[in-house]
Design a protein around this nucleic acid. Structure first.
Lengths: 367, 367
DNA sequence: AAATATGATTGGAACGTTCCAATGTTGGCA
DNA sequence: TGCCAACATTGGAACGTTCCAATCATATTT
C-alpha cells in the first residue's frame, strides 16, 4: 500500500467552468462571486458558493496570478534566523501579512550575498507583490537599484542600505544606545565598554554615536581600549568580556551591541565566578524574549521585535496600496527594560546589593 | 518624486515568444532551452540564452505552474518560531530546499489550530509541491486524512500525529531522555525531577518513558511529586524549579522537557543564589545553539536541529521523486552534550567542584 | 537509389483565471 | 407606450508557459 495518495487519483480537479455549469451560470459570474464582487446578486452568490463547496473546488492561484500579472506573495529575506531577534521579527511580519491575505515566501541568507541575490531573483520569478529585505552585511546599494528596476515594492528592514529613497523600518539606534549608556552612567559606572563590531556598518555607527553622546553628557571619557571589536554573536560576547576584564583600565560595565552578545557576556562572566549586576553590569539591545529569563535576567533596550515586524508589514501593505507615495519610514522607539544584569557601581549606592533585594521588581519598564 | 518605481514603466516584460522572434527560433525551442533539455543543439541553446539575457527575460512561474499543474513551492508550517529549536530547524530546511530548487512558503501557527488549517488551505491554493508540517498541539489525525485527500505529499516533523502511514522526521525521544537521565544518575543524583507537561502528547510520553526506564535501570524510584507539570516554556522552567525546590523530598537535579525550559530553570536558580552544576543539576533537550552560551552552559541532549531540518527536507525530496513508496521515517539519534549545568551530586565525587576546574573542557561530546 | 533511422526544431492546443465590452432584464418615469 | 437608467449576467480574448505530435533535414543502412 502506497504511503501517500491512496483512494482514487484526483481525476480532474473542478474549475470555475465546472461550477458554472453545475450552477447554471457563466464562468464570469463564478469568478466574480469568488472575488466577492458586489455586482452579483446575493442570492446567486450563495448558490454558486454552495455548488463550489459541494464540488470541492479549490482556487487556482497560478491561473489567477498569470492573468492578473500579480500575486499575493510577499518575499521575505532574513539574514540570520538563528538570532531570535529576527525570528521574532519574522513572526510579527508573517502574522500581519497573513491577516491581510498575503502569504510569506521566506528565505534565509545567513549573511551570504550570493544566496541573497539568488533568492531575490527567485522571488521575482514568483511574481512577488512585494519584498521585505533584512539585508546581509555589505549589501551594495547597487543591488537595491537593480531591484528597483523590477518595479516590485521593497521594504528594507533593520539595516539601512543606500540612500533614503527606499521604504524602511527599523529602530532608533542612537536614542536606544543613549538610553542604555545613560542607565549605566546613572548607576555610577564611569568605565563603560562597548562590545560590538568596529566598522560594522550604519547600525553600529549609530549605536556607537549614542554611546559616545551619553558618555559625553555624563562627562565620562572613552578609552579607546573600551571599544571592543567582536562579531555580533554569543561567542563574540564571550570574547568581549574576556578582553574587557584583561584591560589595564578595566571597565565595570558594558553595553552590548545586541542581546545575543549580551548572553555571551553573561555566560563568560558566570564561568569566571562573577555575577552580572553585582560584579559587572551588562546591558543588551533588541529585547528578545529570552532576555527575561536569562541568568540573570537581562537589562536591555527593547525594540519589541515582533511589533517591529508587524509595523514593517503594515508599512509594506501601505506601499502596496499607494505605489507612488514618497518613501515611508518607521523607527521603533526603543524602551529601556531594567532587569538584574545591570547594577550599581561599587560605592555608588550602599555597597553591594543583595541578590535577594533585586528579586522583587522582576521587570520594570522605563522610557 | 515617487519613492519606488521610477524610470520608465515596465512596458510589457519580454516572454519566450519575444525571445523566439529575436533568436529566430520557435517558442517551443526557447522553452526547451530554458528547461535545459538535451534535445536542443548546444550551439542554439547558448544563442537563445544570450538573447534571453539581452532582453532581460524573467521566467514566469505562474504561467509554467498553471500549465504543469505543479509548482516548486514547499509549504512549511511551524508551530512556534519563538523557540530557537524551530528557528534552527527551519534554517536547515530552507537551505536544503533552496539548494534543490524549491522555495519555502512559510507560515507560523503559534499553536493555533484554526490558523493551521487556514495556512494549509492557502498553501494548497498555491499548488505546493509538498508540505512540511510541525503540527500544533492537539492537531487531529482527521486533518491529516483530509490533507491526504489533497494528494500533496506531507511530511510530519517533530511531533507524530495519527498513524504511521505518514512520512515523519523527528528524534528518538526515549533514547535521548534515557541518556540524559542516565547521565544524571551516573553523577550520583538519586532524586531527579522531570519538568514538562503531563499529558502533553506522544513526545512527552516518550520522554517520560525514557526517564522512567533510566531511573529503573539505576534502581531509583520516582516520587510522583517529581513529575512536575509545567508548560514547555521559559516561564514553565522557572515555575518548575520553584516547585521542585519546595518539595519535601527535594530533588537535586532535573531533566527539562526542552532547552528553553532548561533556560528558565537556570534563570530561576540564579535568582535564588544557586548555581546550576554545583547546587542543582539541569539537563535540557534539543541542543539549540544558545545552550553553549547560557549561564552556565547547558548540558543537553542535542538532536542538532539544523541537521534535523536538512534531513527532513531530504526526506520530502525523496518522497517527491518516489510518490508511492512506503512511508519514510527518520529519527535523529540524539547526543548527550555535557556542559556545566550538570554536576556531581553531593558526596558523589570529592565534595564540590571548583568552578575553575569545570572551565577547561568547555564542551565535550559523548554518545 | 530508395528506405530508414536519428537528430533538431516547430505548431498549436491546452492550463484556469480575469476583465472588458456587450447583452439581457428589470422598473421608473415622461 | 416608449425611453432610459440601473442592475445582473455573460462571451471570449487574453495571460505565458508546456508538451504532444508533426515536420524537416541529415546521415546511415540496404
Amino acid at each position: 500500500m502506497p504511503a501517500q495518495a491512496p483512494g482514487k487519483p484526483p481525476g480532474r480537479p473542478p474549475t470555475i467552468t465546472d461550477i458554472a455549469e453545475a450552477a447554471h451560470v457563466s464562468k464570469s459570474t463564478v469568478s466574480l462571486v469568488l472575488q466577492g464582487s458586489p455586482l452579483i446578486k446575493a442570492e446567486t452568490a450563495t448558490r454558486v458558493r454552495g455548488v463550489a463547496d459541494a464540488l470541492g473546488y479549490v482556487y487556482n492561484r497560478s491561473a489567477a496570478d498569470l492573468r492578473r500579472r500579480a500575486s499575493n506573495i510577499i518575499g521575505t529575506v532574513i539574514n540570520d534566523l538563528t538570532n531570535p531577534f529576527f525570528a521574532e521579527l519574522l513572526v510579527g511580519l508573517e502574522r500581519e501579512l497573513a491577516d491581510a491575505g498575503y502569504v510569506t515566501l521566506m528565505a534565509h541568507t545567513g549573511e551570504d550575498l550570493q544566496t541573497q541575490e539568488r533568492v531575490l531573483a527567485s522571488m521575482r520569478e514568483y511574481h512577488a507583490a512585494g519584498l521585505i529585505l533584512c539585508p546581509a552585511f555589505d549589501t551594495s546599494p547597487a543591488l537595491l537599484q537593480q531591484i528597483r528596476a523590477w518595479h516590485i515594492p521593497v521594504l528594507i528592514v533593520v539595516r539601512p542600505v543606500g540612500d533614503e529613497s527606499f521604504d524602511f523600518a527599523g529602530s532608533d539606534n542612537e536614542t536606544g544606545t543613549f538610553a542604555a549608556t545613560t542607565h549605566l552612567a546613572e548607576r555610577g559606572h564611569r568605565r563603560i565598554a562597548f562590545l560590538g563590531r568596529v566598522g560594522g556598518g550604519p547600525v553600529y555607527e549609530l549605536r556607537r554615536r549614542g554611546f559616545a553622546r551619553a558618555m559625553r553628557d555624563h562627562s565620562l571619557t572613552i578609552e579607546d581600549e573600551w571599544l571592543i571589536d567582536i562579531p555580533p554573536t554569543r561567542e563574540g560576547g564571550r570574547a568581549g568580556i574576556r578582553q574587557a576584564l584583561a584591560l589595564r583600565s578595566r571597565p565595570t560595565a558594558a553595553f552590548c551591541y545586541n542581546d545575543i552578545v549580551a548572553f555571551g557576556a553573561l555566560s563568560e562572566l558566570g564561568e569566571r565566578g562573577l555575577r552580572a549586576g553585582r560584579d559587572f553590569s551588562i546591558v543588551g539591545f533588541d529585547g528578545i524574549a529570552d532576555g527575561a529569563h536569562s541568568n540573570p535576567p537581562l537589562t536591555t533596550i527593547s525594540v519589541d521585535p515582533a511589533r517591529l515586524g508587524a509595523s514593517a508589514a503594515q508599512l509594506l501593505l501601505t506601499r502596496l496600496r499607494e505605489p507612488s507615495s514618497p518613501p515611508l519610514r518607521y523607527l521603533a522607539q526603543p524602551q529601556l527594560i531594567v532587569r538584574q544584569s545591570s547594577g550599581w557601581a561599587e560605592g555608588a549606592r550602599a555597597t553591594t546589593v543583595e541578590p535577594e533585594a533585586l528579586r522583587e521588581p522582576l521587570e520594570r519598564r522605563t522610557t
